[in-house]
Design a protein around this nucleic acid. Sequence first.
DNA 1: TCTTTTTTTGGCATATAATTCCAATATCAT
DNA 2: ATGATATTGGAATTATATGCCAAAAAAAGA
Lengths: 169, 169
Amino acid sequence: MPKDSTLADVVTLDRYDRQILELLQHHGRINNQELAERIGLSPSPCLRRVRALEDSGLITGYRALVDAKRLGHSLTALLHISMDRHTPERFANFETKVAALPQVQECLLITGQEADYQLKVVVHDMDDYQNLLLNQITRIEGVTGAHSSFVLRRVLEHRPVPSHPDTAY
Amino acid sequence: MPKDSTLADVVTLDRYDRQILELLQHHGRINNQELAERIGLSPSPCLRRVRALEDSGLITGYRALVDAKRLGHSLTALLHISMDRHTPERFANFETKVAALPQVQECLLITGQEADYQLKVVVHDMDDYQNLLLNQITRIEGVTGAHSSFVLRRVLEHRPVPSHPDTAY
DNA sequence: TCTTTTTTTGGCATATAATTCCAATATCAT
DNA sequence: ATGATATTGGAATTATATGCCAAAAAAAGA
């Protein structure tokens, strides 16, 4: 009989799995042969492990990263949104409306007296930002407040999730 | 003679390039044959375009996404940090120290009276968070304030950067 | 509009990589 | 130590990537 487990169980990983996760988080399109070589395993078990990590849901997908500025999106902003009432309907409606805006890169439901959501948005310039904010976001039902911060510089981004238990302090 | 251009020029893309960017931002590890088929081009020009997008710096890399919770990082927090003085040395030192913390997923220098930096961190639990905050982050020279928000739910994450000009409002 | 020039494509040949299978090895529990 | 279980490595096969070039398309010029 298998040990107690749920679908969302925290998995146990050995050094190979950790190395695979580490490498794929940096080089998501590395080929299996090179991945195998780098972790010190032959290609077939390496590929099996990658598939297992994908099938287990530990690896949830792969993404290409694109330079937003080169695409003409010079301005990135963090938007803190407050809602009037904290009902499921309000939230569901807000989330649907926000999901329809392509400028929204991220939407997090957060704790805090100052805001219920944090959005990360990319736009071409301040005019576009103003339009987005005034004509789209603040018009969503239930939105009572919005506070903007602008990203001056991306110091760190897309860093790998630590694949081993945090070390002691 | 080539037209005026700088390294960071905003590039012009046709529908194929846009489709490639769109698909690779969703399926970063799709193979070239399927990518070609999906955008309606044969494999060789498709691959040439992908390479061109990579070489031009528009595609800056590829990442595997991993489920932080499954790795035991149950708590994600947004940390707003204020600094005492806004000197390059202060900032450089802070950024170096923060880059050495594996729990830090993102660090943005932002505008706003309330904070200079926003960090996104992942930890196992509240105890770990407390340790990180009190023993690591607030001890960095120049840090005068820290305000925490916790991520209750990730509504939207890792969304593709729009690859065509924003539509009119 | 027609012609010339330039760019891009599609298909083929070749090189490289992924995938499957199984015997051999290593690991684990007793 | 011993048997049971899981994992590996290598070979054969299948699939994919890559480089090349003639043909098609697009752009520029007359």
